[in-house]
Design a protein around this nucleic acid. Structure first.
Lengths: 189, 189
DNA sequence: AGCATATGCCAACACCTGTTGACTTTTACC
DNA sequence: GGTAAAAGTCAACAGGTGTTGGCATATGCT
């Protein structure tokens, strides 16, 4: 049982940081506000995490483990992915933190890339899909775009859409990005 | 010929503001930096635009006129829209400004909503599409998500994809959102 | 008990932010 | 050419930011 007390405030800081970063974005989330939420002194944040950048890095450090899709048939992969991502987005605000901050913070961009390019693409490669990077990118574009409209921008019909309907709309799109033959390349000019 | 000189610096400020807001987002784009880019004094920005908020409102005030799609057959509407949006995104950085700032600035969100919910949805209504708001929202989710990955996050395969390939991938998705019968509504519980 | 150490609070720092007012220069009209 | 208004400059303000060091308190070990 190593240092019980400090660990609890460390965790409180991290939780408050996640909430603030997710709600306000990187620049508007101030250390003072985070400290106030955690009911401790701003100096504690610095003592425990060194700097705002490092605090953010710690707050954004979690692993989004994609489910093992090795045995999922390619046809139903779209719906499976859609449902998984939806659950993941609503489970906690980790991904919302990443999305809100990725627009101005390079660390968040890298983390986000780690999920799609470095985790989804290799998983697709297992399924022997061609151009896995392109397909992973397309999936990312639809998933992130939907999350943007639903959780950040709050576009009315998207924000209130029931989960099942979301899966019904997004599933086929993701499925097409994963299974449809790549379009013939035209002249670059 | 009303006040020539002032109009030129007004325009210079606005141009610099668009660039900075688009590159850095609302909070990190400082009035001092914008003024420096326009090679004028920060006080001039205030004299001409009153406040940072009003400057931003002015910088984000442009009309994205969607093309008249009244005579485009529904089948090819997806590709037409995909190509139009792509052109519009790359013509200037207006839309990039909106997207980068919409994450933390409410004015930008409203402008963005004005494009999709208040402009695209009614246009769809003309084509007698059912649930035009939902479909406009879905189109927004894919268009914005792709723009996010391509212009803001810079995901490698998406950022470098040739325009024709973009249209080939996104066109059918948008077409489906516009033409596919809405999925049966399940229980809300 | 006493003491070293971990934990917490406070006040201040240096800097940057939007914003303001007074002052000087340029412009344009009679 | 003189003069009033427009355009531009400069310095400063008030407030907020991340960050730091010193000091008080609590904790846990021997």
């Amino acid at each position: 049982m190593a240092e019980k007390k400090s660990d609890r405030t460390r965790a409180a800081i991290l939780a408050a940081a996640r909430e603030r970063f997710g709600a306000d974005g990187y620049e508007r989330a101030t250390i003072r506000a985070i400290a106030a939420d955690a009911a401790i002194d701003p100096a504690m944040v610095m003592r425990y995490y060194g700097s705002k950048e490092k605090l953010f890095a710690a707050a954004a450090d979690f692993d989004i483990r994609l489910p093992d899709i090795g045995d999922v048939p390619l046809e139903s992969l779209g719906e499976v992915l859609a449902r998984h991502f939806l659950e993941r987005w609503e489970a906690d605000d980790s991904l919302r933190v990443l999305l809100r901050t990725a627009v101005t913070n390079e660390v968040a961009v890298e983390r986000m890339r780690g999920i799609f390019a470095a985790q989804l693409a290799p998983t697709l490669r297992v399924q022997a899909v061609d151009q896995p990077d392109v397909r992973a990118g397309l999936v990312a574009s639809q998933v992130l775009g939907f999350a943007l409209c639903r959780y950040i921008l709050g576009f009315p019909p998207i924000a209130t859409m029931p989960d099942d309907e979301v899966v019904a709309w997004l599933g086929p799109t993701l499925a097409r990005y994963l299974t449809s033959p790549a379009p013939r390349r035209l002249r670059h000019a």
